[in-house]
Structures are given as C-alpha cells and as structure tokens.
Amino acid sequence: MLLALALALAVPAAPVQAVAEECPAPKVVHPRYPLDLARANKTGLVLVGARFDDCGRILETRVDKSSGRKLFDQSALESVAKYVLSAEQRGKGADGWVQVPVKFGGFRNVEARKIPWPRSHRKPVYLPDEQAIPFDSIAGFQDAKVTNDDDVLQNPYGMSRDAAGQIMRTGMYLDRKDPDVFWLTYIIQPPFPASPTEPMGASVTAAVARYRLVEEAGVPVVRLGLLCERPADECERLREFLFDGLPFAKARRG
C-alpha cells in the first residue's frame, strides 16, 4: 500500500486546462428615483460615461453631463455601475467607454391615498351616460385640466403586461369641481428598452372614462362615459370590462 502511494505521488500531475470565463447575461438596472424629487415631480437626464470589460461588466463610471441635481447624478451612477452590456452595446463604445443616458421622470413615486368613493355607491347600477364627455379628444381632456392631479389616488386596477412587453396601467382622479365625478385614465407604456443607450418610449393615454355618481328612483347609479382612441374592437372590450364595475364598487346584478 505504501509503495502504491509512493508511485502515485511520483506520477506528474496532468496540466490544468484553462477554463474559458463565462460572461454574465446582459443586464440593465433602472435607477432609484430619489423620494424628495419624486414627490416634487422633478425630472432630469444624466449622461453617464461607463468603462466596461470584455464581458460588458462596468468597471468605472463618470458623469459626462450632469442633470443639475446631485441626487439624480448619484442615482444614475449607482444604477449604471450594475449594468452588463451586450455585445451590440459594447460595439458602440470607443476605447472601452460607452455613454449611457439615464432619465428621471414620467413616474410619480408618491404615496397614493384611498379613493374617496362614497359608501352609497358600493353596489351601484352602471349605465351609459347620456351626457357626452365634453371633449373631442384625449388631448382636449388633458388640456382642459378638469382633474385634481395633485391629489394622487390609489390605482384601482394595478398594472399588467401583455405578450409584447407593453405595460397597461390606470389612474383615477377627482374632478376639480364636482365631488361626485371621478375620472379614470387608461395608459399604455412601451416595454423597457433592451439597451441602456436607447431612449425610453413615451407612454400614451389610450382612453379616458368618466364616472358620474347619481341616484335615480332611489337607486345608486353610476353613469359611465368613455372616450377611447384605440381600434374599435379594443374600445368595445374596454367598455365591457368597465361596465362590470370597479373592484371596490362592482355592478349590481338583477
């Protein structure tokens, strides 16, 4: 046994084969929106210079163009430092550096309050509104500023994502003048870009619904009007969905 052990130890070890490094998958980390600036609805753009290695990992960052706000600049540097660039993104660089735009804005990161929907209309009847919405377009609705946008209410339906990566979200707002009128916006947001050097697409308000709370013959009624700028079949599906009632005020049956 000892002889076998000695012979085994005398055999030269096989050369160690170098193992090629496996690069991590490309990754984009979206920046933290500083809370104070989000509450103040401040926006900004930072151009971050990033030095990368052969796998696209970020080795060093710098501010090539400041947003003018230190909190935005710092948050942008922190997020880009966690990127892993794809081969295509690395190909756009020069001398191992690439410039990354980081945008702040478009999202309101503030605490929303509960929708002040009256108890009298927790189980209403939903009917089409005979009073037309007084706007020819969604742009006209937005220009009129009929909602109290500073009073941020909870999102009644949350967010969803379709197969193409588009994000659908809603927002609910109080009418500035009539406490018995609520407005719902239906917003389509494009997918986040695969490349950190690509600009973020703009969100589109695709539809606006008006909820007018009334009482008819002693019955709580919600008169619902819809202004929709999507294909006809999509608008009809949205209309049917809305007439099922809000999550906290489902339509009365029977």
Rank of each mutant, 00 (worst) to 15 (best):
K92T: 08
K92L: 10
A94G: 02
A94R: 13
A94F: 10
D95L: 12
V100D: 09
P101G: 10
V102Y: 13
K103H: 14
F104H: 07
F104W: 06
G105Y: 09
G106F: 08
E111Y: 10
A112G: 04
A112Q: 10
R113G: 09
R119L: 08
H121A: 00
H121I: 00
H121W: 13
R122D: 05
V125G: 00
P128G: 01
P128C: 05
P128E: 01
P128K: 05
D129M: 04
D129Y: 02
E130Y: 05
Q131G: 13
I133R: 00
P134D: 01
A139K: 15
A139P: 00
A139H: 08
F141K: 06
A144Q: 07
K145M: 09
K145P: 01
K145G: 02
N148K: 13
N148H: 12
D151L: 12
Q154N: 06
P156W: 07
P156S: 08
Y157D: 04
G158I: 01
G158M: 00
M159L: 05
S160Q: 04
A163W: 07
A163E: 08
M168F: 12
R169I: 04
G171P: 05
L174T: 10
L174Y: 06
V181P: 07
V181G: 07
L184D: 09
Y186P: 00
I187T: 15
I188S: 12
I188F: 07
I188G: 02
P190H: 05
P191L: 04
P191G: 06
F192T: 12
P193D: 07
S195Q: 04
P196Q: 04
M200A: 15
G201M: 04
S203Q: 14
S203R: 15
S203G: 14
T205I: 15
A207R: 06
V208E: 00
R210Y: 07
R210I: 13
R210K: 15
